[in-house]
């Protein structure tokens, strides 16, 4: 697996950083790949723009940050404004359509836009807080960068005791919904 760069962007408090950590752990611990996760954040813990990055590779990862993302998750309007510019010609973009509306004609040619009501799906599961796990399921399905099995193991090792079932459901919801988008595409 060649170097694969993922950027998760949204608002502080949405759990992008935790999603990034879980993704990196899935790759590093359960898939035997190399992974680096980093983030940038403002001084505010909640509400400011938040960005997590994950680089995954089967080789050494020299440069630890994202240069041109292979995958971009967008979970707020601000995040699109800030990170929508830095995408490449083949970037796969997943937007949380509950919070952001972008049309295919406003993204560069060659890029692929996926829309899922991530926050809405999390609400339907009973807890908006699992939106990041719904997103994680969708990223796994669309990117194929790590296996669903590895991500599930990584999720279960990170989430608080007693929330395992909820998080498993969230992961499945995101994964299955995204799989149907991918199937349509194919």
């Amino acid at each position: 697996m060649q170097r694969y760069e993922i950027r998760l962007a949204g608002t502080g408090g949405q759990g992008q950083i935790l999603a990034g950590i879980i993704l990196a752990e899935a790759a590093a611990i359960y898939e035997g790949l190399n992974a680096v996760q980093s983030q940038s954040y403002g001084p505010e813990s909640r509400g400011g723009a938040s960005k997590a990055e994950v680089v995954i590779s089967d080789g050494e990862i020299d440069y630890p940050k994202v240069t041109v993302p292979d995958f971009l998750l967008v979970m707020s309007k601000d995040a699109w404004g800030k990170y929508g510019q830095g995408i490449g010609s083949k970037t796969k973009i997943l937007i949380d359509s509950t919070l952001v509306s972008i049309e295919q004609d406003s993204v560069p040619e060659g890029t692929r836009l996926y829309k899922l009501p991530i926050t809405g799906m999390a609400k339907d599961l009973g807890k908006e807080i699992v939106a990041n796990i719904v997103a994680l399921g969708a990223i796994t399905a669309i990117s194929g960068v790590v296996s669903r099995d590895a991500v599930e193991k990584a999720v279960l090792s990170r989430v608080p005791k007693g929330t395992e079932e909820l998080n498993k459901k969230a992961l499945s919801a995101g994964y299955d919904a995204a799989m149907s988008l991918v199937a349509v595409e194919e």
Binding site: A24, A28, I29, A35, V36, S38, Q39, P64
Partner: peptide, 9 residues
């Protein structure tokens, strides 16, 4: 800050 905060295998 890069080394201190990034997570790596």
């Amino acid at each position: 800050e890069v080394i201190g905060h990034m997570r790596e295998k």
